[in-house]
């Protein structure tokens, strides 16, 4: 039985955490736990957007940090491995992104409605 993970806050330390964001954790641990479906809310909704391009360069002194997280790449990888990825419609609206194209395989929904299906999951984790 799979888990439902809800990510409602992104960008928890770009310079120090870099690639190791919540979505990386889902990529690494999801299979071990029988699969993880993902809900994107809050500042994480933009992980579902198509056509965003790679993360910007971060130069710190002599070091070009090119290992920042790429949430859209992670979402693509999760969709490819069969995870259901939902992006919160009110969250997109709050950012003026109602009409923004989404990555293939991502479902736009008022994710509060998914609560009716929480019983289908082994657990519901807010990451």
């Amino acid at each position: 039985m799979a888990y439902l993970v809800i990510i409602d806050r992104g960008y928890r330390g770009s310079a120090e955490a870099q690639f190791f964001d919540a979505l990386y954790g889902v990529e690494m641990l999801g299979d071990q736990l029988g699969g993880m479906d993902v809900v994107l809310r809050g500042s994480s909704v933009t992980a579902a957007l198509a056509g965003a391009g790679p993360p910007p360069a971060l130069q710190v002194g002599p070091t070009a940090v090119n290992t920042l997280a790429d949430p859209r790449r992670s979402v693509g990888a999760l969709v490819d491995k069969g995870a259901a990825v939902y992006v919160d419609e009110p969250g997109l609206t709050a950012l003026g992104l109602d009409d923004a194209p989404l990555l293939p395989g991502v479902t736009r929904i008022d994710t509060a409605h998914l609560a009716a299906r929480w019983g289908d999951y082994a657990g519901v984790w807010f990451l």
Binding site: F19, Y24, T63, T67
Partner: peptide, 25 residues
């Protein structure tokens, strides 16, 4: 940092390394 398992050949600098780089430069 510990390796990104999706791309273990690309090293990622620790925050300490970034700070040390600024202190040196």
């Amino acid at each position: 940092k510990p390796a990104d398992l999706r791309d273990p050949a690309t090293p990622a600098p620790t925050a300490g390394a970034l700070i040390r780089g600024l202190l040196t430069a």
